[in-house]
Amino acid sequence: MNRTSRRSYTSFAWLGVMYLLTAFALIPLGLVLWFTVAKGLPPALHIEFYTNVFRPVGVPGAGIKQAIVGTLMLVGMASVMAIPAGILGGIYLAEYGLARWAGWVRLASDVLVGTPSIAVGLFVYAILVAPLHHFSGVSGSVALAVLMLPIVVRTTEGSVALIPNGLRESGLALGLPRWRVSLQLILPAAAPGVITGALLSVARASGETAPLLFTAFGNQLLSLDPTHAIQALPLTVYQYALTPYKSLQDQAWGAALVLVVMVLGINLVSRWVLRRQIALAGQL
């Protein structure tokens, strides 16, 4: 075997190894999706699943409306709290964050990213639920917002820092104040990354169970009042999956599927709404 063919065999073999490992990495993703769809689809095909609330085992027509509405409320409120603050924080770090203070902010958000979500739940329990003596949607969304915040901060900082300095200087050279350049020129230019980060945080918050256990707590009935306990999809999955009843277990799979589809839907819709900005910034 001469050298050239040995090299090409080696190259071929390693390429094969890479394909194999990539396939391995995709197996869990594929299996999760497959099981969720296969097991979740049967209950999710009934319209009552979306229009009705909890019914005792044996009573037909049970639904998870309270959980769908609850998750939308919880994640919606958490997004309103976390995304604007996180984006502004990220811009601050990337655009102005040279001082030692910014280093602490970075460290804090890194630590917060790694904090177990149940600890965040306990924290919110201590500061909101215990003093007010009842569980509430608000406390649940605060817990989710705490989890979302560092994700938004760091992804925003990362994508803003990638914007070439020339763009910043071009804006400033026109006599525009720095904050306007940051918010109205740099931020739109960084839009694709910022949006991805925000959506990542929404996806993360939508799937969290632990921080809701002793904040939003869960509710078998539909509640639109954020000051009362409300249900969420991951709570439904958690609670129903632990019961011995097949009908509730099926509903847990259905709720999991709804959750996956919902996160996917939020993702696609936001990208579609912001498509023009994403396309413009993508060409930079």
Binding site: G171, G175, A189, L280
Partner: peptide
Amino acid sequence: LRQKVGMVFQRATPFPM
């Protein structure tokens, strides 16, 4: 000052719009 003294850079830096 910056309105009075404009600047053109080495790279053209079109704004994303």
